[in-house]
Design a protein around this nucleic acid. Structure first.
Ligand SMILES: [Zn+2]
Ligand SMILES: [Zn+2]
Ligand SMILES: [Zn+2]
Ligand SMILES: [Zn+2]
Lengths: 144, 144
DNA sequence: ACCATCATGTTATAAAATCACCCATGGCAA
DNA sequence: TTGCCATGGGTGATTTTATAACATGATGGT
């Protein structure tokens, strides 16, 4: 959180109230959230109530490495290690929907090499893994 | 294509006209296509004209490993090596939108290991790489 | 022929994302 | 100061993507 504030100052970008609050929301509910879910919270707190409000704030956060977009879930999650320029793999539990962020440098290397072979220049990558988290694998499936 | 037919027969699933035609469409336009784009083609050829028609056919293809869903583009692409049970990485050119499918077993290993460390059991994974293809990197950017 | 199952089609609706526009703020140069 | 411009935030309307709910038609075994 504080890291985010520092980062913004350092990059010379404006971490305005909506943006800050959006990041806090993502952090509070340490789960991936849909844009409309975020919007609902924002609206309830006196911010704008229309989709663009949430999308703009979320886009900003993603743009500046403070959050990630989890395509598979159509959702967003706060970055756990911002300012680190990483290629995280998202471990998405299909039962409880929890998202863990695993940093696996080996992936970046492997992909970089494979891409390089075909002349493709890598700019960004997303790795999303679907499966069962330890909790759900052990106990009963939460949401069958 | 023939591979798909064989595969279906072998799996005992029915590769019906809509499904077959959908796969052909994906193969013809060797690009990732949106569901509504596919639907348009299907409708023009006398098949149903409502969204579920396309979604069902596409879901079937994905389900049986004949096509992939490219989350980043909200699109689908025919699988280039069906029946191979692979974890492909999609190389998506942000300029011409072309999608290449690179098979990188090293990724599966790296992810599997990282996931295993945290007790997460992997079931499926998608790797999407955004960047510039060789063509676009060389010449002018097609769509700026 | 009969029934269970799967496949296709339709209408209607939900969910997600973007467009177009206006107004407020705040820095900055004339 | 004043006018200008860039940026951000707010709204209403619209587009795009996806699913729900239901009816009909085909398929295959008994
Ligand atoms: Zn991160
Ligand atoms: Zn779980
Ligand atoms: Zn494939
Ligand atoms: Zn290209």
């Amino acid at each position: 959180m504080q890291a985010a504030v520092d980062l913004a100052r350092q990059q010379g970008v404006r971490l305005t109230p909506v943006r800050l609050r959006t990041l806090e929301i993502l952090l509070e509910t340490h789960q991936a959230m849909g844009a409309y879910e975020v919007l609902e919270r924002l609206a309830a707190e006196g911010f704008g109530s229309q989709p663009p409000v949430a999308y703009r704030a979320l886009d900003f956060l993603v743009q500046h490495g403070l959050a990630h977009r989890v395509q598979r879930l159509n959702a967003f999650a706060a970055c756990l290690t911002p300012g680190h320029d990483h290629a995280p793999a998202f471990l998405i539990c299909r039962s409880c929907n929890k998202v863990a962020e695993a940093d696996v440098p080996a992936i970046r290397d492997a992909v970089g090499q494979a891409a390089g072979d075909s002349g493709f220049s890598v700019e960004r990558m997303t790795v999303e893994v679907l499966g069962l988290c330890d909790r759900c694998a052990a106990g009963a499936e939460v949401r069958p």
